[in-house]
Write a protein that binds this DNA or RNA. Structure first.
Lengths: 345, 345
DNA sequence: TAAGTTTCTGAAAGCCCTTCCATGGAACCC
DNA sequence: GGGTTCCATGGAAGGGCTTTCAGAAACTTA
């Protein structure tokens, strides 16, 4: 590792270290002449500033950290793209922590509380333990929540209520009256919200809710937002022997893919026999031609970063909470389109 | 941000800062008594070490950076899981840079050359520009290559030659004699290697190579390792009107998914009419029931980290290159199994 | 008990930067 | 021309830690 410091540059350019620093930081208080001299030497010596010395002196690290349920859900990866691109363009670095358990979340939160390590923390979809809420809040450590909520912190969420409503109404508008729901684990707030508004929309439209046609996953891994969960829920539904609803609202694309598998194994056609609308619109939804509620994931990532930077600048600004409205993307799985579902004959 | 420093602890515990530091770093040269006193105070004050001050003093950041073709390919995300988990357990942090273009790769390489920023860089699947090779090498900056190669640096790769051979032999063993290949862009080294050994294996088995049945993608995005690329290649193949091979070796799972789509659109059944073997074994391969060459991605990530840490300890150790042998995972798309392909009736 | 060891401890130096402050010279004023 | 203002500049201080070094304390040994 080459060890060129501003002292070396100062010596070679016959100036003081203060001047070197000023030049490198584009301070206006340097004559063009001196500036040129310093720049030339810096280039010649191939100078690279020491990031941590800078961070220490500036009391700012230009690094954020993101804690996400990493590899379990493609959703986050897509949001992350928005985060990363925005950050990079602003000269920030991003440290990523993939959490697979509650303990890990706490471990990572502790890590990110280490003074100086990061300027702020982005927490994705994970519940914020109360004791950390207090700690972050008391110490004014910037924390932005994405797809999760806490009254003390800025949050960016999807409007699950509206999403569930639109999805359900879409199925109703297609003439379905017997509609089921394949849901994730009710421990997850989005699952609860989606369920509640699914029911409410049915009721509002004069359709009685049939609890038998609502399957809430009991899986804990990723709160039941998984292919396996969808597969098993639908299997269960079919195995029950009761008359199958003609349509299902499924709480995520990834579950819907499992649902499709279960249906196909039983030679139940989509959308002819059963129509499906799901939620998320991840990359996979396109591949499987799912009608789904699309969340502007990239934009959510972008906004998360923006909020974070504002929070860093103004630690005492009012806490804000933004709700993104999901939009309906009509593909084949709901039957509104003529073309058949991609994965089936 | 709470600002407890070792000075505060030293004062309260009636010791010197050196002693505090020693206690916190588990140096054995402290009496149990003093140690307890310091630990107690540290706990009471809720002390958190300042990461960057440590990094500066230790001349080590305990942070690595990974440059990956981020969101274009699920393959990397899976490798990354291995990387991240291993690193975290060792107290390292991981900065992630997703590169979407050559320029970005260079930008990120420059970033990671910033003194002190990271202890080492992991470069995934991307070609290392020669001028950076020189720079990293001259300055002994640790660099480990995964799924790419340069003689000056440690590398971890998949044995594409063996993989292509096994895949091809598998198709031959199933009785196919007219085998085509859907390949990625030949600009990519893996694409070239897979093609070469596909041809060679055919030749070795006394089967003439028919260039007409080999489609190399001309796409540049992600070097043609994409669903679209696979789709278009197969469309082209079908459109040519020539007799379709009874089997295809496809250079990646993601392309194979596009291939399946194209085939289905033309009512060509898999595996009955056309058998498919692909490469990678990403999560999606399971969903689509693809027979594919599996790469131990998690292990590759783990090993990459291990190599990196060794390199950091011993900057002058001999450069090593490890080849992982892929293994054949037989699912439905090759027709060796009775069960039908998941995505088709 | 004095000298010699060993062990522990406090303080200073160093890591590399940014920023503040004092300085000196140039430019400006009357 | 003497005094003032302005501004580029050099250098010290400071950021929080690790580590070295020398001295103090504790313990041996003769």
């Amino acid at each position: 590792m080459l060890a060129v410091t501003i002292y070396d540059i100062a010596r070679e350019a016959n100036v003081g270290i203060g001047t070197v620093s000023r030049v490198l930081n584009n301070s206006p208080k340097v004559t063009t002449q001196t500036r040129d001299r310093v720049v030339t030497v810096a280039k010649r010596l191939n100078y690279q500033p020491h990031a941590y010395a800078q961070a220490l002196a500036r009391k700012r690290s230009n690094t954020l950290c993101a804690i996400i349920p990493f590899f379990t859900n493609y959703f986050f990866i897509e949001v992350l793209q928005g985060v990363q691109e925005t950050l990079t363009s602003l000269g920030y670095d991003l440290i990523i922590h993939g959490a697979n358990s509650k303990d890990q979340v706490e471990e990572y939160l502790i890590r990110s509380m280490r003074k100086g390590r990061v300027d702020g923390t982005l927490l994705f979809s994970l519940e914020l333990p109360e004791r950390f809420a207090d700690e972050f809040s008391e110490n004014k450590m910037p924390l932005v929540l994405v797809d999760t909520f806490h009254p003390k912190f800025d949050s960016i969420r999807v409007d699950n209520a509206t999403g569930a409503k639109i999805a359900t109404e879409h199925l109703l508008s297609l003439g379905h009256t017997n509609i089921g729901m394949i849901n994730a684990n009710l421990k997850s707030a989005p699952a609860r919200e989606r369920l509640m508004n699914f029911k409410q929309t049915l009721t509002e439209n004069g359709i009685a809710v049939n609890e038998e046609n609502i399957i809430n996953s009991s899986e804990t891994r990723n709160d039941g937002f998984s292919r396996e969960s969808g597969y098993h829920s639908m299997k269960e539904c079919i195995a029950s022997g009761k008359k199958l609803p003609t349509a299902f609202f499924v709480s995520s694309d990834i579950q819907a893919i499992g649902v499709l598998a279960a249906l196909r194994e039983n030679s139940i056609r989509v959308p002819e026999d059963v129509a499906i609308v799901s939620f998320d619109d991840v990359e996979l939804a396109k591949i499987f031609d799912l009608t789904t509620m699309s969340q502007p994931m990239f934009n959510m990532g972008e906004l998360a970063v923006k909020k974070m930077l504002e929070r860093i600048e103004h630690p005492d600004a009012l806490v804000t909470s933004v709700n993104f409205k999901p939009t309906l993307v009509v593909r084949a799985s709901c039957g509104a389109n003529k073309k058949y579902v991609f994965h089936q004959q």
